[in-house]
């Protein structure tokens, strides 16, 4: 089973999603990933049955900017929480339509209308809520998710990515992708099998 389908032209000409290279152990995958990284490919990924520590560095994956975005989401929650309460409890303003809008200024147990301690629980909750929703939502967004389907999932060989095989996939949209040259390159990295994945 070490034949390469990529070298034989497919019966019907279909677009190629990318090249799939199979490895049998994490160490060889790691070394191959370092070479792919150094070759300057950008649209590629590794698929392993379990988390391989150090693979991020081997692939040259940058740290995510997600934390900064989540911090922003949290600050948004803080501001909304404060503005919402400060406005509804204790202030009024003229909207763009020149309508004078007033909130509900209730006097509760003699406290000032604008009393921060009473607002803090809501501010806190909104901060947590927007941070949490922002973390999940922005994570999906940054990953380009959700996808209804992915070309790799139609590939029989790729099924073993959840079992005992390790894969590198270089996508055809990568500017350095040339089918024959990339295939030779992947083989030279010690891939047991290299095959084309149909789009």
């Amino acid at each position: 089973m070490t034949t390469t389908h990529a070298s034989t032209p497919p019966a019907t000409r279909r677009r190629v999603h990318g090249l799939l290279a199979e490895f049998h152990d994490p160490a060889s995958l790691m070394h191959a990933a370092e070479k792919v990284r150094d070759a300057g490919y950008r649209w590629w990924d590794c698929h392993t049955p379990f988390a391989v520590h150090g693979l991020d560095q081997a692939m040259g994956v940058q740290r995510t900017i997600l934390p900064i975005l989540v911090f922003g989401a949290g600050l948004t929650g803080t501001s909304i929480g404060f503005i919402l309460q400060a406005f509804t409890n204790s202030s009024s303003l003229s909207l763009w339509a020149l309508v004078w809008v007033t909130g509900y200024p209730f006097l509760i147990s003699g406290k000032p209308l604008l009393s921060l301690p009473a607002f803090i629980p809501v501010i806190f909750e909104l901060t947590v809520l927007l941070s949490a929703l922002g973390a999940v939502g922005l994570m999906l967004l940054l990953n380009g998710l959700p996808w209804l389907s992915h070309p790799l999932l139609a590939n029989k060989r790729f099924l073993r990515a959840t079992d005992d095989r390790f894969f590198i996939v270089i996508e055809s949209r990568d500017p350095r992708f040339f089918r024959s040259r990339t295939e030779e390159f992947l083989k030279s990295l010690g891939a047991k099998v290299v095959e084309a994945v149909e789009a």
């Binding site: 147990s109 301690p117 009473a118 803090i120």
Partner: peptide, 12 residues
């Protein structure tokens, strides 16, 4: 600290 403060502040 805030929980302690707020309850006492509110209860007055």
């Amino acid at each position: 600290a805030f929980s302690q403060y707020m309850l006492i502040w509110y209860g007055n």
